[in-house]
Amino acid sequence: MMKTLLKVEELHTHIGQYHILQGVSFEAREGEVSVLLGRNGAGKTTTLKTIMGLTPASKGTILFEDEDIKKRPTYVIANSGIGYVPEDQGIFADLTVEENMKVAMRKEDDATLARQEYVLDLFPDLKTFWKKDGGHLSGGQKQMLAMARAFVHESKLLLIDEPSKGLAPIVIEKVMEAITEMKKSTTIVLVEQNFFMASRIGDRYTLIDDGATVHAGAMKDLIQNEELKRKYLGIG
């Protein structure tokens, strides 16, 4: 059996006076793609933000490589090997593509530059727009930049929030290819509403509803479970 890289247990998060997460649990096993599913407002984005320390957890544990990272500041979490692609992509609008990459690079030595070349080969479009402002990119290009930026270091874990959001099918195809390639060297937690995409690249799923885990298992089981899909995803 594969090693568990990330283990989230009974996670609770408050934002202001709202109790948003009320018991999210799931795990990500090394080398797999774990997909978080759930309707709009279920708490998927908040789960990723809580793992990153952006919305601090009020209860529960977040074990990453068997250490609880719940109380650590965001930058420490990032530096311990977790890359993050937020739902809104978080592109620095007034910085060029090149500069956006540079902010993410901890060093500018040959190894990192070589790694950057490798990442850019996954997203060749970015090279074309190398000097363009991030804010002027198309939605798809922004998505690619955000993924490239998160992947410019060899992260152990990548958190990707709805990469297919608002993209044309052909672009989704490209994003999927890139994720498939990334999966070879890293573990991925993916939030995805597009069930077609989720089912093709996901190994296991966690269903979140009203801020809590309601179901989890292997993706191939979910594909066949019409009732679950209808109940929580409104499809099937």
């Binding site: 965001t74 530096n79 902010v103 901890r106 930026r149």
Partner: peptide, 20 residues
């Protein structure tokens, strides 16, 4: 660069591993 990026989106700067 980090300062300019921070002015635009400080959460993201932290998520990229920088102690803002």
């Amino acid at each position: 660069l980090v300062v300019r990026a921070g002015v635009m989106n400080k959460e993201m700067v932290q998520a990229l591993g920088i102690n803002i």
